[in-house]
Simulated assay, not measured.
Amino acid sequence: MSASHSRFAAVGFDRNVFLDTLHRDFGMTDDVLMDRVFRTFDRDNDNCVSVVEWVEGLSVFLRGTLEERIKYCFEVYDLNGDGYISREEMFQMLKNSLLKQPSEEDPDEGIKDLVDIALKKMDHDHDGKLSFADFEEAVKNENLLLEAFGPCLPDIKSSMAFERRTFQEKRKL
């Protein structure tokens, strides 16, 4: 057993080890979203993902039901934890996750347009922000909206590769 594995068995993942894992095993690169994923896994807010938090988090991350994934994505996107995804939060996440295109026009304008489109499509009670109910209804109507504000779930390929590496059967020939 490597030193990092024995350290994990004793205490859990600290933030840096966790973020390295997200990057290495799941190809995540967005610092804001990776930090939010860490906060979502770290249920007791002790800046360490314990074995129990890791297993519970992974079960949603890799194999969660649509309902579990909606709750998880909402928590990731609610940057300040106030129960809403605000226009400012959407702007910040989209600005981070969209590729920077060299162009004459102000990229912030395009992002503001995307935020307006997202609100028009998802803000069912028209209060200018997304509650959990708004987000849930929008995603249930159109599953592609689950990761509307940036990739915070692994793609199928990296999920399967992770599961294969982690749970591969030892077969006797």
Rank of each mutant, 00 (worst) to 15 (best):
Met93Val: 03
Arg87Glu: 09
Leu94Cys: 09
Asn96Ala: 14
Ser97Ile: 01
Lys100Trp: 01
Glu104Cys: 10
Asp82Gly: 10
Arg87Gly: 03
Glu89Cys: 00
Arg87Tyr: 04
Leu94Thr: 02
Asn96Glu: 15
Phe91Ala: 00
Glu105Arg: 14
Leu79Ile: 05
Leu94Asp: 03
Gln92Pro: 04
Glu104Lys: 12
Leu98Ser: 13
Gly81Glu: 09
Leu94Ala: 08
Gln101Asp: 10
Leu99Val: 14
Met93Asn: 01
Arg87Pro: 01
Glu105Ser: 15
Gly81Phe: 07
Asp78Lys: 02
Glu88Ser: 11
Tyr84Asn: 07
Gln101Lys: 15
Gly81Trp: 11
Lys95Tyr: 07
Asp82Tyr: 12
Lys100Tyr: 11
Met90Cys: 00
Gln92Phe: 06
Ile85Met: 05
Tyr77Met: 09
Asp78Thr: 06
Asp106His: 13
Gln101Ala: 10
Asn96Lys: 14
Ser86Cys: 12
Lys100Ser: 06
Phe91Pro: 00
Pro102Lys: 08
Glu105Asn: 15
Glu88Gln: 15
Ser103Gln: 15
Gln101Ser: 10
Leu98Glu: 09
Leu99Glu: 12
Pro107Ser: 11
Arg87Leu: 02
Arg87Lys: 13
Gly81Lys: 07
Ile85Thr: 00
Gln92Val: 07
Leu98Cys: 10
Leu79Asp: 04
Asn80Ile: 08
Ser86Thr: 11
Asn96Leu: 10
Ser97Pro: 05
Met90Gln: 08
Glu105Phe: 13
Asn96Gly: 12
Leu79Ala: 03
Asp78Pro: 03
Glu104Trp: 13
Leu99Tyr: 13
Asp78His: 07
Gln92Ile: 11
Arg87Ile: 02
Ser86Gly: 14
Ser97Asn: 05
Pro107Gln: 05
Asp108Lys: 06
Lys100Thr: 10
Gln92Met: 10
Ser97Gly: 09
Arg87Thr: 00
Ser103Lys: 04
Pro102Ile: 08
Asp82Phe: 08
Asp106Met: 04
Asp78Asn: 09
Gly81Met: 13
Arg87Ala: 07
Gly83His: 12
Ser103Arg: 15
Leu94Val: 09
Glu104Asn: 14
Glu105Lys: 12
Ser97Glu: 07
Asp82Cys: 09
Leu79Phe: 06
Gly83Trp: 05
Arg87Ser: 01
Ile85Tyr: 02
Lys95Leu: 10
Leu94Pro: 02
Glu105Trp: 08
Gln101Cys: 06
Met90Tyr: 00
Ile85His: 00
Pro102Trp: 06
Asp82His: 13
Met90Gly: 04
Met90Ser: 01
Phe91Cys: 08
Asp82Ala: 11
Pro102Leu: 12
Lys100Met: 08
Asp106Asn: 15
Gly81His: 12
Ile85Ala: 03
Asn80Lys: 15
Ser97Ala: 15
Glu89Val: 02
Leu98Asn: 02
Leu99Gln: 15
Gln92Leu: 12
Leu99Lys: 15
Glu88Arg: 09
Asn80Thr: 11
Tyr77Ile: 05
Pro107Cys: 11
Asp108Val: 00
Lys100Leu: 12
Asn80Phe: 05
Gly83Phe: 08
Asp82Glu: 14
Met90Val: 01
